[in-house]
Design a protein around this nucleic acid. Structure first.
Lengths: 342, 342
DNA sequence: ATAGCCTTTCAAAGCGCTTTCAAATTCGTT
DNA sequence: AACGAATTTGAAAGCGCTTTGAAAGGCTAT
């Protein structure tokens, strides 16, 4: 059932039927109702490709998933972000498209995705500290919004980010107030901008307190449970182990907790832990009282905001870039406590 | 840059250029090279909507995410499944599209997605024991593959599934061999087929051993960490607590472990735990020696297989449905041990 | 040179929609 | 009754591609 057939059935022109369906004003109420009834009855759905070809809009938003960051697609944080975005998209009639590409071909993928008209805009995930994709997308003139920022990119672009630096600075300061001096950082991949900023916050707090950072207490990698476990084990085996640990994700924090428990250390008493909590829907930080003291910021909300911003940009491509900096809360849980003397 | 412009630049007809680009044989090698060079130089990408309109194929696979199963999109298991599928899609030139819909409109969404030509095929996720979507899709004549099965649907359809029943039956038998008699089941949502099958396996093993199932030891819900924790707490508070627990997911198992550790119980010694392990990439079951004894099956692989099967179906829509039943391994970890005499 | 056969190229129709511009109809006024 | 304005409908072009059916060009064999 296509437009032609439907209009023949109704004894109307394609023009009128098209208008009636798309809510144009120059159609009489009577015909509109007639058309709508017939469309429903015959289960007519306009072909989106034909529509897209005629209008020049795909009504699809693209997300590109590079293969190399193996865990990206699979990353639970990504999942919640996308869930938030998806909800906004569907409210505005957009679909969401994923393209999975080898990262050597990533540039080509972005170029292709937009130029071939498959999408109207793009969300850029997991920016590095100096992310070339941003230059590429601006140059291609694709409407896009970055989830996060890229510190070393100077030209303006739209982004939604959490104040990662301040969050980790505050968390570190809090641990310092509790008397801790040996504070470890188990970070995300520090090639990624958010991790670099968290590190900067951590370092800033240490410096302010006049404490020299110890490389043995700092590490960053893909945020898996295993990594949190491994690093904690390694650090606890040091001659001068940390008395507090700052962790970049709930997932890694689970590994940290496992390592601590294996050694009979109790969080909050024997050692303090603060984690970043993205408010993942299936991995909440406890029920009533939070398990972990945490810097908290909903990644799902970030997804919603980024989606809104992108849709706005698509509608008005020539507005100057917009930004949204979300502050993370520092919430008190059971995993922190004053430094125990010796 | 479109086909018309490119062909004018080359002084060729659109026909010839199109053929050269798409690798048709009736083009001389010389012109083909010339066309390819020009396409590259001018960065030409055929418009996919126009192409789709002309060929009738979208080169897109659809996944529908109902909103009600709030965690579905966000579900880490879903993420790994999709990662596997995405990889296969991209190898075959397909993109992947997600539609996020309220589940009251799910029927309409499927209908729409295919009829309006947005996708060439669909993957059905998380089937219920009696899933109406399967009837709908067959009736619409959409190529589709189900991840999992729907026990109460009798008509044939294509699926990729894990032998959930056997996996949980074996796991239960193993616990019985170790001497356990009070075995708890912390399951997924039992309206979903995979969870129902796991329960069936569990029950079959108990029955064979002549043990009457105890409703107080059985529960199913969304597989979150919190749920695993809550249920374990509740069950341990019983007059006659379980000595072994069977868990449907690593995520819930983490909650189980947390509950046990809070009470000072050690897995493998004081209480036995077996979990299902989907081999999530960022949540592995330990490094060398598995933490949990587990029924293991890669959900990522399932995604790959389902994608292959679907692409096959799209190519040959009239072949009879195919099936793939993956067996889960029972791997021995540190979380199980013989029943301790009370 | 010519016929016949490949090989290579092209013009034009068609995919299903939107949208411009023109035409037909209706209505309120005089 | 007639006119202009406002409302409602329609014919046809166009979006960028593929593909059919025809034509042109290049061979070989006579």
């Amino acid at each position: 059932m296509n437009l032609k057939e439907l209009s023949e059935i109704l004894g109307l022109s394609q023009t009128t039927v098209s208008r009636a369906i798309n809510g144009y004003p120059e159609v009489s109420e009577a015909t509109r109702r007639r058309v709508e009834a017939a469309a429903l009855e015959h289960n007519y759905r306009p072909n989106s490709r034909a529509k897209g070809l005629a209008t020049g809009r795909a009504m699809v938003i693209g997300h590109v998933i590079p293969t190399s960051s193996q865990h990206e697609l699979v990353n639970p944080i990504f999942g919640d972000f996308v869930a938030g975005a998806a909800q906004v998209y569907s409210q505005h009639g957009y679909d969401m498209m994923f393209t999975h590409v080898d990262d050597r071909e990533e540039e080509s993928a972005y170029r292709s995705l937009y130029k071939r008209g498959a999408v109207d805009g793009v969300i850029l995930q997991g920016p590095k500290t100096r992310d070339l994709r941003i230059d590429l997308l601006s140059q291609l003139n694709v409407p896009f919004v970055v989830h996060g920022r890229s510190s070393q990119v100077s030209q303006p672009y739209s982004w939604v980010d959490v104040n990662n630096k301040r969050a980790f600075q505050r968390a570190t300061e809090f641990l310092l107030h509790l008397g801790h001096r040996r504070i470890a950082l188990i970070n995300g991949l520090e090639a990624l901008d958010f991790a670099a900023r968290r590190r900067a916050g951590y370092l800033a707090a240490l410096e302010q307190a006049g404490i020299a950072p110890d490389p043995a207490l700092m590490s960053g990698s893909e945020m898996t449970e295993i990594f949190g476990h491994e690093k904690t084990c390694a650090m606890l085996a040091l001659d001068n182990p940390p008395t507090a640990i700052l962790v970049a994700s709930m997932i890694s924090a689970l590994g940290v907790r496992r390592a601590l428990e294996e050694r009979g250390l109790r969080m909050g008493r024997d050692i303090s832990v603060i984690t970043h909590d993205d408010e993942l829907s299936y991995l909440q930080n406890g029920a009533d009282v939070p398990i972990f003291t945490a810097t908290r910021s909903s990644v799902r909300q970030a997804g919603e905001e980024a989606a809104k911003m992108l849709i706005e940009r698509i509608a008005k491509p020539d507005t100057p870039p917009s930004h949204m900096l979300l502050e993370a809360e520092l919430i008190l849980g059971q995993s922190t406590g004053p430094l125990r003397q010796g």
